[in-house]
Amino acid sequence: MNPALRIPAEFVAPSTEDAHLPPFFEVGSFAFGKQSLLILLSVVIIAGFFLFVIRRRAMVPSKGQFLGEMGYGFVRNHLGRDIIGEKDFRPYVPLLFTFFFFILVNNLFGSILVLQLPTFAHPGSAYVVAAIAYVVWVFVGIKRHGFGQFMVKMTMPPNVPKILYVILIPLEFLSNLIIRPVTHALRVFATMFAGHMAIMVAAALTAFLATQVGGVLGIGGSIFGIILGLFIYFLEVLIQVLQAYIFTLLFAVYVQGALQEGH
């Protein structure tokens, strides 16, 4: 057989276990690992950046101040005022701001060399943030309308024959109050995990072709693997930004729906 076409042992793709690194230390059932460290780092980065850029509040802003004000203005105006409404949006701007930049930075960790781990690729992070969002908009709806009227809004769509409520009430209850928070979390988790795994597979395949196959097939395949990996990388950066936006946008939509009058 031509050595250039020799095929070695079959390629073994990275598994889900490879995406979860062992913890640095454990205390009982509590484990502190790379994911926990990156979450803490994200808080330091976000707080440090915005505290730094607003320290002087110049009339003619520096580049850092301009960037910070632009980010805040985007969340305040586009995700707050335009979605929730001019009358009600102000109390929710801090939470919208926190959701957007916290998810954004933690997602982008997956595209930074050495770090290379989007913390929302672990389901726990996504479920905690989605749970906070869920508690807030449900509380807001009950506070505005009372428990009974809020449940009516969530389970009884207007302008339908009353006989259909026998079917619609349980379906709407499951859709709005059970499935909605789950999908809110799964959307960001699933995309971050899938993108992280795709990059791992592309990198492992490239390394396998370059080091194990060799010859024309190995060189050609590794070049293709690099191109594929770069494509996935830039696509993942786009998705990381979009998922931070979509999560925060949906929270704003849920709050707006909880606040609006009528059904």
Rank of each mutant, 00 (worst) to 15 (best):
R6N: 11
F11G: 09
S15H: 03
H20V: 15
F25P: 10
A31E: 14
S36K: 05
L38S: 13
L40Q: 12
L41Q: 11
V43D: 07
V43N: 13
I45D: 04
I45Y: 03
I46P: 04
F50G: 09
I54C: 13
R55W: 10
R57A: 14
M59C: 07
P61N: 07
S62V: 10
S62P: 13
G64D: 12
G64Q: 11
G68M: 02
E69F: 00
G71N: 05
Y72N: 00
Y72T: 03
G73L: 01
G73S: 01
R76V: 04
L79M: 01
E86P: 08
D88K: 00
D88G: 02
Y92P: 06
T98V: 13
N107I: 00
F109R: 01
G110M: 09
I112K: 03
L113P: 11
V114H: 11
P118V: 08
P118M: 08
T119A: 12
F120D: 08
F120L: 11
G124I: 15
Y127I: 13
V128W: 01
A130I: 05
A130V: 04
A131F: 13
I132P: 02
V136Q: 08
W137H: 15
W137A: 05
K143I: 03
G146C: 02
G146H: 00
F147N: 13
K153Y: 02
T155Y: 10
T155P: 15
P158R: 10
P158Q: 08
P161I: 08
I163K: 14
V166S: 11
V166N: 05
L168T: 07
P170G: 03
F173D: 08
S175R: 09
I179E: 01
R180C: 12
A185G: 13
R187E: 07
F189G: 03
F189E: 03
F189A: 04
F193M: 06
M197H: 09
I199L: 08
V201Q: 06
A204L: 01
L205V: 05
T206S: 11
A207Q: 14
F208K: 05
T211L: 10
G214Y: 00
L217H: 04
G220T: 05
S222N: 10
S222W: 04
F224K: 08
F224R: 08
I226T: 11
I227V: 15
G229L: 02
L230H: 04
L230W: 08
L230E: 07
L235V: 13
L238S: 12
Q240H: 13
Q240Y: 08
V241A: 14
L242I: 08
L242Q: 07
F247E: 05
L250C: 06
F251T: 03
A252M: 01
V253H: 00
Q256N: 09
G257W: 04
A258G: 07
G262A: 08
